[in-house]
Amino acid sequence: MEFKKYSKTLFFGATLAVLAGCGGNDAVTQDDVNASTDGQVQPVITSDGSNGDSAVNGEQLGQEAQNLQDQASSAIAALPEVETVYFDFDTSVIRDDSREVLDLHVAYLNANPAQNVVLEGHADERGTREYNNALGERRGNAVKNYFMVQGVSADRIEVISYGEEKPAVIGHNNAAWSKNRRVEIKY
C-alpha cells in the first residue's frame, strides 16, 4: 500500500517513453535532449518535421525487405540455434565472433514482429556480486543496443541481469569462467 503510492510518485513524469512507442515526434525530441545531456550518443536519425519520419521509415522498410530476402524464407520462422554469446573478463563489449549469432537473432526478430525477447546477462564468479550484477546488465544492454540499431524496437526487449548468481558451468577455472560471462537470448 505504502509502496504503491510511492511508486506512483517515482514514476510520475516518465510518460515519454510510452509516447515514444506510439511514434510521437515530441517524444523523440525529448529523448534526444536527454541523450545528449547524458553523455550518450545522438541518435543516428533525427526528425525535424512531419514527413521526415516517413522518409526514414521508407528507407528502413526497404532495407528490411532486403534483409528478409537475404535470409531466405526458410530461416524466417526458425529460431536461431545458438542463443548464447560470450564476453571477455570485466567488459561488455560485443566480440566480433558474436556478431554472426546476433545478426541471426536480429533477422528472426525482424521477421517475427510479435516476438519479444529476454536478454539474460551473466558474469563469472570473480569479483563482487553487485558489480557483477551491473556487469551482467551492461552485457545484456550491449546486445539490446545491437538489436535496436538494427530495427528491433526497445519495447520488445527486456534485459535481466543475474550477475554471478546463475553460472552455466560450475568451476573455479578459466574454462568455467569463460562460459559464464555471457548473455542468453531467450524467447
Binding site: V18, A20, G23, G24, D31, N34, A35, N57, M148, A154
Partner: peptide, 23 residues
C-alpha cells in the same frame, strides 16, 4: 511504468522501430 524510462538510445530507436512495423 518503469519500462517508460528507457535507456536513452533505446527510446529514440524504439520510435523508429515502432513506426516501422505499424506503418
Amino acid at each position: 511504468n518503469a519500462l517508460k524510462v528507457l535507456p536513452l538510445m533505446a527510446a529514440s530507436f524504439s520510435l523508429q522501430a515502432a513506426t516501422l512495423f505499424t506503418d
